[in-house]
Design a binder for these strands. Structure first.
Lengths: 108, 108
DNA sequence: AATTTGCGAAACCGATTGGTTGCACTTATA
DNA sequence: TATAAGTGCAACCAATCGGTTTCGCAAATT
């Protein structure tokens, strides 16, 4: 099945998983303890994240440690880039407005 | 129905709509011309985007112009912020490595 | 006044989602 | 060697998704 990273982060459980494995590698069992769903349900989420190339895995004995592979997350950032100019522009406009109204310096 | 911005951007058609209305206000009919789906299908997407507070609307006669309200998009950016440090760290590590290996400047 | 246009809402539909349970396979442990 | 532990996969299920068609209503046009 063809999925993309936007679909991957659409589910709140998957977003939570991504946060948990961002800085440490965890096994499905360990992850499942963090949620109110079965170990198999977590495995299905892992499978989806894996298909989106968001995971690195390392097998140690019968355990499999999953960790976030950060690269694909940049795709979200790149997509946002198209809009970032908009809110920065708006911020700059506000900034100029403030400068115009009060013509003295302030902390920010 | 309770939806969030991550669900809003999960669908490719909705992402395309968001881009189209980022810099100009458009009507559902105009938007529908851009896609191979019915005007009503576009309206359903608009409804979802509206529930996520991603839209501003202005009624002109019998037409309704929709435009992107940028604020909620920042939520995605804020969520990404949690991970941004990770790939910046990795970039910095790579940067230092390059500096260590070759101690002269190069074009990139 | 009658008709056309633009829109949202509702009913319907097949496909997908996110969960479950059960099972099979591999690896450790008794 | 038998048993337990860790995992992935498949079958199943109710709910949701993304599309359609039909309809009703308000605003413009004839």
């Amino acid at each position: 099945m063809k999925r993309d990273v936007f679909q991957a982060i659409a589910d709140p459980t998957r977003r939570a998983i991504l946060l948990l494995i961002a800085t440490q590698a965890l096994t499905p069992n360990t992850l499942a303890e963090e949620f109110d769903i079965s170990r198999q349900a977590v495995s299905k989420h892992i499978k989806i994240l894996n298909e989106c190339e968001l995971l690195e895995q390392q097998k140690v004995g019968r355990e499999i440690f999953y960790q976030l592979k950060i690269d694909k997350m940049k795709e979200i950032d790149q997509w946002l880039e198209q809009f970032r100019q908009l809110w920065e522009d708006r911020f700059n406009q506000l900034d100029e407005l403030l400068i115009t109204i009060k013509n003295k310096q302030h902390g920010k």
